[in-house]
């Protein structure tokens, strides 16, 4: 079926079988490989993307569900000039990246939270990350990075 939606700020349309997941369509049809397959059952969050600003697991969402909606993947997070977002910079500065496999989902989970509040408590940050597993970092520097990016945005605004 024909699915039309907004992907990383651009209107797109794709002809794909209706039973495919959003993850499969993003990876195989749009060749956006930033969203990963980690478990395929919605437990790990490596496939997380934002749909209308809400964090969802693209492995558990059928692609037709995003018709007429907006989808943001990690590829759409950086500014158009190729630089890094403040949150991405904070991930690097705070050492929040190790193997990198969870990182796209973590950045998007951070963005979803910072869209709600720029001054989250550490507990709120941990709750916002609860659907994204990381096996390398113990989460601490990811929490640090999100808190720092929020504080920085608060200062700028």
């Amino acid at each position: 079926m024909l699915i039309q939606f907004t992907l990383n700020g651009r209107p797109v349309s794709v002809e794909a079988p209706a039973h495919l997941t959003l993850l499969t369509v993003l990876r195989d049809y749009f060749h956006l490989t930033g969203a990963k397959e980690g478990c395929s059952i919605g437990e790990c969050g490596t496939c997380a993307v934002l749909v209308d600003g809400e964090l969802v697991n693209s492995c558990l969402m059928l692609a037709p569900k995003v018709a007429a909606r907006t989808v943001l993947t990690i590829e759409g997070v950086s500014p158009a000039d190729g630089s890094l977002s403040d949150l991405q910079e904070a991930f690097i500065a705070y050492g929040a990246v190790q193997c990198g496999f969870c990182t796209p989902g973590m950045v998007l989970a951070g963005e979803a939270l910072l869209a709600q509040t720029l001054t989250p408590t550490r507990e709120q940050i941990r709750t916002a990350l609860a659907g994204n597993l990381c096996r390398c970092t113990g989460y601490q520097q990811i929490v640090d990075a999100i808190a720092a990016a929020g504080a920085q945005r608060k200062e700028v605004n």
Binding site: T33, E75, Q88, I92, V97
Partner: peptide, 11 residues
């Protein structure tokens, strides 16, 4: 800065 971090945070 971790040498491979920029590629990882951008996917």
């Amino acid at each position: 800065r971790r040498v491979d971090a920029a590629d990882k945070v951008t996917g």
